[in-house]
Write a protein that binds this DNA or RNA. Structure first.
Ligand SMILES: [Mn+2]
Ligand SMILES: [Mn+2]
Ligand SMILES: [Mn+2]
Ligand SMILES: [Mn+2]
Lengths: 220, 220
DNA sequence: TTAAATTTTTAGTCTAAGCTAAAAATAAAA
DNA sequence: TTTTATTTTTAGCTTAGACTAAAAATTTAA
C-alpha cells in the first residue's frame, strides 16, 4: 500500500458513507483535489489489486478488502487525534493535519498499544466513531441540530465539518462536545436558530446548525 | 523536504560522525542501500538547496543548514523511540523500524509536546543522546567495553549496534542499560572478555564487547 | 430520437527517484 | 611515470503518480 493508494481508499470510503452506490470519478477527483484522469489511472490500479470494483464509465465502489483497509486507516487517524488531544495538549482544530500524516504509519503493534494506552476510546475529538480492528464502525451518535424542534434539549456529541475555521468558531461561541443545548426558537425564513448553552443565549445560522450533532434528551 | 531527501541527510550525518571530512559517494550508497549513481543525483539536488557542500569527485559534507535538518530528524527518531518504550510497551529491539517512519512526521508542536510529555529525556532506549531543538547533541556517554582493562568496573550506558539481533542477544544474556559490569579477564588471543553482571559470570566475544558502551566507575 | 452537454477515459508529457552500462576522473601499482 | 584498478559521474531507461488535451461514452435537453 502506497501513501497515495491509501488516500484514495479513504476518499472513496468517505464518499461512500453518504452517497451510496458507485462513486463517480469526478467526485473522487474533487475530494482528493486532483484531476479525473489521475483518478481513472489509480482506480484501475486499485481494481487490479482487488480493492475496488470498477467498470469503465460506471464509477467505483470499495470491495470488502478495500473497505477493511480504509476503515483501518480511519481507525489510525482517529486514534492519533485522540492521542494528540488527550496527551499532547492539542486543540480539536489542530489535530487533523497531523493525523493525516500519522494515519499512514505501518505497525500493528503501534496502533493496538496506542488504543490500549488511550483506554480504548470509542470516539475521536470530533465525535466520530473509531472503527475496531475488524473495520466495524458504530453509527455516528445523535442527529443534526438543524433537525431539532423548538424546546428540544440535548447534548452536543459531534461535528460534521471538522475544518479548523468551523471549530474555532465553535470555540469562540463556547460550543463544545458534552455541552447541554436547548433550542429556544427556529426562524423559518432563513432556518436560523436561537439556542441556549450554559445560560448563554444566541443565534446560529443554518450553516452552523447543519454541522453539529446533538443527542436528544428524553422529554421531561 | 521529501522523505528521500531527509533520509540522505540523515545518512550523511551519521557517516560524518565517524569518518570526518568529505563523505564518499560510495559510502553513502552503501549506507542507503542504493547505487552510487542515485547518490550523485541526489547530492546534486541537496547541493542546489544549500544542504550539502559538494564538488565533483570530492565527496559531500553537510552544510550548517543540512546539519540542523539532519539533527532534527534524529531528534524526532530518538524521541519516538523513547515514547514507544516508555509508553507503549515496545522493547528496545522493536522500536527502530517504527521510528524510521515516525521521524518524518512534520509538526513542530507535535515533537515539542512529545518531548515535554516524555519529561525531556536526554537519551533514547539505546543510550544515544537526543539532540535539542537547535541541533546540539551531547557526546555519547561512556567508552567501549572492549577498551576496559581487567578489574575495571562500570555501568552499561549504551550500545553501538542497535540491530534487533544484537539487542536480542543482549536480552538473553541479561545485558541491559543501567546494569553494573565488571571485567574479570581479557583474553589477548581473540580479544574475548570474561565479565560479571549481577553475579552472573560469562564470556563475550570481541564483536560484542566492541558494541557496548560503559561508563567507568571511579577506582575504589 | 436526434443534438448538445457532461462525464469519463485515453494518449501523451512531466518530475522524482530509482537503476544499468559506459565514460571520465582519481588513486594505486608496477 | 606509465599502466591498471577503483571511484564517481554521465547518459539513457523505468515506474509511480500527476497533468493537459483530445476522444469516447453517457446523460440531458430539445
Ligand atoms: Mn481528522
Ligand atoms: Mn476527527
Ligand atoms: Mn533507531
Ligand atoms: Mn536509538
Amino acid at each position: 500500500m502506497t501513501l497515495s493508494e491509501e488516500n484514495y481508499l479513504k476518499a472513496i470510503y468517505h464518499l461512500g458513507d453518504v452517497h451510496d452506490g458507485g462513486i463517480s470519478t469526478n467526485a473522487i477527483a474533487e475530494q482528493m483535489n486532483t484531476k479525473a484522469s489521475s483518478v481513472t489511472d489509480m482506480i484501475k490500479k486499485l481494481s487490479e489489486k482487488g480493492l475496488v470494483h470498477y467498470k469503465r464509465y460506471k464509477g467505483s465502489e470499495l470491495t470488502e478488502k478495500g473497505t477493511l483497509v480504509a476503515a483501518n486507516i480511519i481507525r489510525k487517524h482517529r486514534l492519533w487525534e485522540v492521542f494528540l488531544v488527550e496527551k499532547l495538549n492539542f486543540t480539536w482544530d489542530e489535530v487533523h493535519d497531523v493525523a493525516e500524516q500519522l494515519e499512514h504509519i505501518k505497525s500493528e503493534k503501534l496502533i493496538n498499544e496506542l488504543d490500549a494506552f488511550l483506554g480504548f476510546p470509542k470516539h475521536d475529538p470530533h465525535g466520530d466513531p473509531i472503527p475496531d480492528k475488524d473495520g466495524n464502525v458504530s453509527n455516528k451518535l445523535g442527529k443534526l441540530l438543524i433537525t431539532l424542534n423548538k424546546n428540544d434539549r440535548g447534548i452536543i456529541v459531534g461535528v460534521k465539518d471538522s475544518s479548523s475555521s468551523f471549530l474555532k468558531y465553535l470555540d469562540k461561541q463556547g460550543i463544545a462536545l458534552g455541552k447541554k443545548i436547548k433550542v429556544l426558537d427556529k426562524e423559518p425564513f432563513d432556518n436560523s436558530m436561537k439556542i441556549r448553552i450554559k445560560k448563554e443565549e444566541f443565534m446560529i445560522s443554518q450553516q452552523i446548525a447543519n454541522n453539529i450533532y446533538v443527542k436528544l434528551s428524553p422529554e421531561a
